[in-house]
């Protein structure tokens, strides 16, 4: 479902206020919001998922205001995976934790069981492998996937993940990237990720840069590159590969700045060989 944030304003004690923030997320797409620490990311996450009511502006899900009188139904369709969500387990076992949300919404154990199984499968776990274990026995990356499952279990139409990659080792990061691609590939839900690093946006359909409580730039990775000054001012650095490519282009090398995996390296290798033998 399409989500729209219209002229959002929200001030919180000790945090960066959101001011006149506008954002549109298309149905079934993946939007990556990138912003430096202190730019208002977590506040944006809470507003976008209906956990916090904005002081000014509206949040619209499929065109309807989620804070209207009938808004509760809409807010139930939004899910947020908090930063370090794995620190907040709400159950002694993986099953209980993932079942927490569904149990609040429905009493039929069979349905709950189905929801939990499906959610775990979506994040790459077979029910029997993990259901009875304590989340504390799992690795950091696995725990985070359980946390994502816990939100998927309530079947949100819009899923927001706040810093899904933070603190994960290389392997867990790859797992998470695969998971995000799988979740968004089908188009059946809208996904928004919030990060501080442009390295983590590969796969996202669109990128938005958050700075000082407002969205200053939206577009593709190519647009980010074209507006790198704005990115730099927002405290967002371009991914290393892009920086390398840009710098090489400046020196006359014919290499693609944005491209498929591996293409950049091949081009660099080609150019390097050419110059070496020149």
């Amino acid at each position: 479902m399409p989500l729209t944030l219209e002229r959002i304003g929200l001030t919180r004690r000790g945090r960066m206020p959101l001011q006149d923030l506008n954002l549109e997320v298309d149905d079934g797409s993946w939007l990556a919001v990138v912003g430096a620490n202190g730019s208002g990311r977590s506040t944006l996450a809470e507003v976008a998922t209906g956990l916090r009511k904005p002081q000014t502006g509206r949040v619209l899900l499929d065109g309807e205001d989620i804070w209207s009188r009938e808004g509760k139904v809409l807010r139930d369709r939004l899910g947020l995976v908090m930063q370090r969500a794995e620190d907040q387990f709400l159950g002694m076992t993986v099953y209980d934790d993932v079942a927490f949300g569904p149990r609040d919404r429905c009493t039929d154990e069979a349905e709950i069981h189905a929801a939990v199984t499906e959610a775990l499968r979506m994040v790459g776990f077979e029910l029997d492998d993990v259901a009875g274990r304590s989340p504390l026995q799992l690795s950091g990356g696995q725990r985070r996937r359980v946390a994502v499952a816990a939100i998927l279990a309530i079947r949100p139409d819009v899923l927001i993940l706040d810093e899904p990659f933070a603190g994960l080792d290389a392997e867990a990061r790859q797992d998470m990237a695969r998971l995000l691609n799988a979740l968004t590939g089908s188009g059946e839900r809208t996904v928004i990720t919030l990060t501080s690093d442009l390295q983590e946006v590969q796969g996202a359909g669109r990128i938005a840069v958050l700075a000082e409580g407002r969205i200053v730039l939206t577009g593709s990775l190519a647009d980010m590159v074209a507006n790198r000054r704005v990115c730099r001012e927002a405290g967002v650095t371009l991914p290393d590969r892009i920086r390398i490519a840009l710098e090489l282009r400046e020196r006359g090398w014919n290499v693609p700045v944005i491209g498929a995996e591996g293409k950049l390296e091949e081009a660099i290798a080609g150019e390097w060989r050419r110059r070496k033998h020149a």
Partner: peptide, 24 residues
């Protein structure tokens, strides 16, 4: 990732490059 891939493709790079600038 980048450095290792480049090496696999035959590019000679010193092992201790740590920043994009150094790679360039």
């Amino acid at each position: 990732d980048i450095v290792l891939t480049l090496e696999d493709l035959g590019v000679d790079l010193p092992p201790n490059v740590a920043t994009p600038e150094e790679v360039v």
